[in-house]
Structures are given as C-alpha cells and as structure tokens.
C-alpha cells in the first residue's frame, strides 16, 4: 500500500514535469498543425540558460529564493528567444509549404540546437550538475516521501496549465488563437494576423518549457544536451495521448504517462526494463479506441 502511494507520487512528479513541455506541443499543433520536434530543445536551452546564470552570474551565496526566480526568468527568456528565432528563421519561410517541410525542418532544428549547445556551452559535452536552488529536504506524508522540488513541480505544473487554459479561453489573444486554430482564413478576415498568433503561441509554449526546465533541473540536479530529446518524446506522446490541441489533455496525458511508467516499473511484467513499453502500449491502446486521445476533438475535414 505504501509502495503504491509512493509510486503514484513518483509518477505524478515525472508527469507534471513532462506536462509543462507537452503544453507547447499541443498548442502549436492545435494552431498551426505543426509538430515542432524542436520544442524539446527549447526546453533544453532553457535549462542551460538557468545553469549559466546561476553558475556564472549569480554570487555563489545567493539564497535560493533569489536564485530560483532569477533562473526561471533567464530560462524563460532563453527559451523564448530561441523559439522566436526558430519560428522566424526556420518555420515562417515555410508557411504554406507542404506539411512535410516544416516537420523535417523541425528535426533539423532539433539536431542543430543540440549540437550548438554541445559544442559551444562549456562542459556541455558531458552531463552537468544543476544548481540546487531549492530547499534540499523532503516532505514526508506517512509512508510517502517527496522531495520539496517534487512538491514544487506538482504544485506549479497544473497551476500553469490551468492558467494557460484560462488565458486561452478568456483573453483577447487566446480568442484569436482559438479562431486561428478553427479556421485560419476566416480568422484573417477578423483582422487577426496569423503570424502574430503563431509567434505568440511559440512564446507561450517556450515560456512554459523554460519554467519546466528549471523545475526539472532542480529536481533531477543534472542536465545534458539530450534531455530535450528524451523528454520531448514523452511530452509529444503525452500531447497525443491527451488529445493533441487540448491543453487539459496534454497535462492529463503527461500525468498518465508518468503514472504508467512508474507503476509498470513496479508491478508490470518485466519491471523497470519494460516501463517504456507500457507507456507506448497505453498510447497504442488509447489510439485504437479513441483516436482523438482523451480530450481531443475528432478530426474534422475542413470545407
């Protein structure tokens, strides 16, 4: 019983962190039908940005409550800057091109960003220890122990997802985003500039990835250039599982993936060795019976 509870918490923490990346995937797909495989790398550069500011610019004795916000702001700034640059230089010229072109470009950008960080960031050819910008202890709830960084992730990730959901539902820009998602041509007739909406989507997704990167770094205390790819795959899977285009779906999908990975490692046949297998088995199973994912709308053919 206590093991079950512990595994559930383990899974939720992992899921919450993946969820922050999944939000970016789901928004971009919802609005431009672009699978931005470089989004994982946007997350990764955020982590390196935070690492840089903490180790190179902040005095070593900076208290965590100062360091953490500074790192978050930096990570968000770096992630957003990279995402905007990628959108401008790689995706915008391809707008209106065949759907495969941006997809292949996304893969290229993903490799490019990994290589650039690997080659130019000092020490990034190997895993780097991430600064521990949060109280190091853990919360003990009966039989369950959670690191405070895990508690933070569990609190912040769903909160940000909810805030994003509200923003998209209530704000003027959110309305423009939804209009562009539903019918880009008519949205233009409403005076909505699709380029601005797409850029805003990249910015929002990157900002969440930047926050996610810091939470990830302080929780696992190590980063490397491959974290974007590894977690990006899970985040993309989460977005598909939850219903790509759906914000709540992405978070739900990510939490499900975290739970399955952790519970399958404990209870399923084959143990931790096969936990990935169970994650993707879940994906296949859900897609077989509900191709649109948990909360997605069935794909409509546009007039």
């Amino acid at each position: 019983m206590s093991t079950l509870a512990q595994q559930i918490v383990n899974g939720l923490v992992l899921g919450a962190l993946i969820g922050l990346i999944a939000l970016g995937y789901t928004m971009l797909y919802g609005i431009v039908q672009l699978i931005n495989f470089a989004h994982g790398e946007v997350f990764m550069v955020g982590a390196f940005g935070a690492h840089f500011v903490s180790l190179r610019l902040l005095p070593a004795d900076t208290p965590w409550y100062t360091a953490l916000p500074v790192m978050c702001v930096t990570a968000v700034a770096v992630s957003v800057a990279v995402a905007v640059a990628v959108e401008r230089l790689a995706y915008r010229p391809l707008r209106g091109a065949h759907k495969l072109a941006p997809l292949i470009t996304a893969l290229g950008v993903s490799i490019l960003l990994q290589e650039v960080v690997r080659v130019f960031y000092p020490g990034a050819t190997a895993p780097l220890a991430f600064p521990r910008a949060f109280p190091d202890g853990h919360l003990v709830l009966g039989p369950v122990t959670v690191l405070w960084t895990g508690v933070l992730a569990l609190a912040v990730a769903p909160l940000l997802a909810a805030a994003l959901h509200l923003y998209v539902e209530r704000s003027r820009l959110g309305r423009a985003m939804r209009a562009t998602a539903q019918d880009p041509e008519t949205a233009r007739l409403m005076g909505i500039d699709p380029d601005r909406v797409i850029l805003a989507t990249f910015v929002l997704g990157a900002a969440l990835a930047g926050v996610g990167a810091v939470l990830y770094g302080i929780h696992y205390t190590q980063i490397d250039t491959a974290i974007g790819f590894q977690n990006g795959i899970f985040a993309f899977t989460a977005a598909v599982l939850g219903g790509i285009g759906s914000i709540r779906g992405a978070m739900l999908g990510a939490l499900s993936i975290g739970l399955v990975k952790s519970l399958a490692g404990q209870y399923a046949w084959g143990g931790a060795q096969y936990d990935y297998v169970w994650v993707f088995a879940l994906l296949i199973l859900v897609l077989m019976f509900r191709p649109q994912g948990f909360l997605g709308r069935p794909e409509r053919v546009r007039a």
């Binding site: 404990q266 060795q273 990935y276």
Partner: peptide, 20 residues
Amino acid sequence: REKVNENDSDFSSVLTKVKT
C-alpha cells in the same frame, strides 16, 4: 535485479521498488 534506460533521469520508480 532491474534494468533502467541509460537516458532516463528519473529512477524514483525503480528505486521505490528496490526499497521494498
């Protein structure tokens, strides 16, 4: 005896199992 993926960062699940 358990196996993990080399690219994983989160070993909490397998360690919880080991701990039991």
